[in-house]
Computed example of a mutant assay.
Amino acid sequence: MDLHDRDTPVMIAGPAADPDVAVVSLRRLHGRANAAAELTRVRRSYHGPLLVEPFSALDLPAIVTHADGVVVGGAWMQDFQLLRAVARTGRPVVVQRAPAATLEEWLSAAEYCVAEGNQDVVLCETGTRTHLPHATIDLSLVRAAGRHRPVLVDVSAAPDLAVAALSAGACGLLLGEDAESAVVAGVRAKAALLGALTCDDVPETIPGARAAIDRVDAALATLLERRAELAATVQRLKPVGGFAGRDPRREREIVEAMVSRAPRLGADRLGRIMTAVIETGLEASEERDLSPA
């Protein structure tokens, strides 16, 4: 299970109806439940990726048997013996930041795992306690931590921060299982677009490269449809719309502006691409205009 190489930068945490990853906290049971029995129960109803937060190191054998990754909660982020034991399981590790932890303390917790030979360590920002009713995500800390390790951001309490978190360098987002379907869909759409634009990884395999292309294509499709909608608005506002109302000077300006952003493609190639985009948009606009209501 690779926690930071996914088709979408959004993970819906569960167990919910159809989560991307189930997250189970044994710590919340305060040691009153047998870890193996509890995880066996979870596995009866859920067979996808499973992350588990242990109550203590005694839970780790059961986690190795049943789970795909281990979560070290923020409250136990500085339990260095637990960090070492978690790392030695060989499972991917998610280290949540304690509400008052500094960047150095957070990174140090991850390094305890790396020192045990486990390189698959992901950080998770869950926020800082403030005067607000829910934890406040520290985006500057996300950006700084992202220069060292992949960072997930839990935006369950503030889904509107999804775009800001990705812009700050988050490689993924967590939404709680109680997130409404409309919220999930909106965050997924924004993440698919922004994730493709902000990700600068260099794939080392053909499947990895194709997955990256798929993410870019998804963003392209979203942008092309949005462009067609805006172009249709322009056509309706023009005295003469459609193909008859094309403005060659404006189209040249568009290509010239794009050359500055994509100089390796060059004006000729971009010109051909934009001609196809413009004409396809005009065709779509005319079809909508002529289609029955």
Rank of each mutant, 00 (worst) to 15 (best):
residue 11 M to W: 13
residue 12 I to E: 15
residue 12 I to F: 09
residue 15 P to M: 12
residue 18 D to W: 10
residue 20 D to Y: 09
residue 21 V to F: 10
residue 22 A to M: 04
residue 23 V to T: 09
residue 23 V to N: 06
residue 30 H to D: 14
residue 30 H to R: 15
residue 31 G to D: 00
residue 31 G to L: 00
residue 33 A to Q: 14
residue 33 A to T: 10
residue 34 N to F: 01
residue 35 A to R: 00
residue 35 A to N: 02
residue 39 L to R: 00
residue 42 V to M: 03
residue 44 R to Q: 13
residue 44 R to C: 07
residue 45 S to N: 11
residue 47 H to V: 13
residue 48 G to M: 08
residue 48 G to H: 05
residue 51 L to S: 05
residue 53 E to H: 01
residue 53 E to Q: 11
residue 53 E to M: 03
residue 54 P to V: 01
residue 54 P to A: 03
residue 54 P to K: 00
residue 57 A to M: 06
residue 59 D to H: 01
residue 60 L to I: 08
residue 61 P to I: 02
residue 61 P to E: 02
residue 61 P to Y: 00
residue 64 V to Q: 14
residue 65 T to M: 11
residue 66 H to T: 06
residue 67 A to N: 02
residue 67 A to H: 04
residue 70 V to K: 00
residue 71 V to Y: 00
residue 72 V to L: 15
residue 75 A to Q: 09
residue 76 W to L: 15
residue 76 W to V: 12
residue 76 W to S: 13
residue 76 W to N: 12
residue 80 F to L: 14
residue 82 L to G: 02
residue 84 R to W: 02
residue 93 V to H: 02
residue 94 V to S: 08
residue 97 R to D: 08
residue 99 P to Q: 13
residue 100 A to H: 13
residue 103 L to G: 05
residue 104 E to M: 12
residue 105 E to R: 05
residue 105 E to C: 08
residue 107 L to Q: 08
residue 107 L to K: 03
residue 109 A to W: 05
residue 110 A to M: 04
residue 112 Y to N: 10
residue 114 V to R: 14
residue 117 G to E: 11
residue 117 G to I: 10
residue 117 G to F: 05
residue 117 G to C: 09
residue 119 Q to L: 15
residue 121 V to F: 05
residue 121 V to Q: 06
residue 122 V to N: 08
residue 123 L to H: 04
residue 124 C to Y: 07
residue 125 E to N: 09
residue 125 E to S: 06
residue 126 T to D: 11
residue 126 T to M: 12
residue 126 T to K: 11
residue 127 G to S: 08
residue 127 G to M: 13
residue 131 H to F: 12
residue 131 H to D: 15
residue 134 H to M: 10
residue 135 A to I: 04
residue 136 T to A: 15
residue 137 I to F: 04
residue 137 I to A: 01
residue 137 I to Y: 00
residue 139 L to W: 02
residue 139 L to V: 06
residue 139 L to K: 02
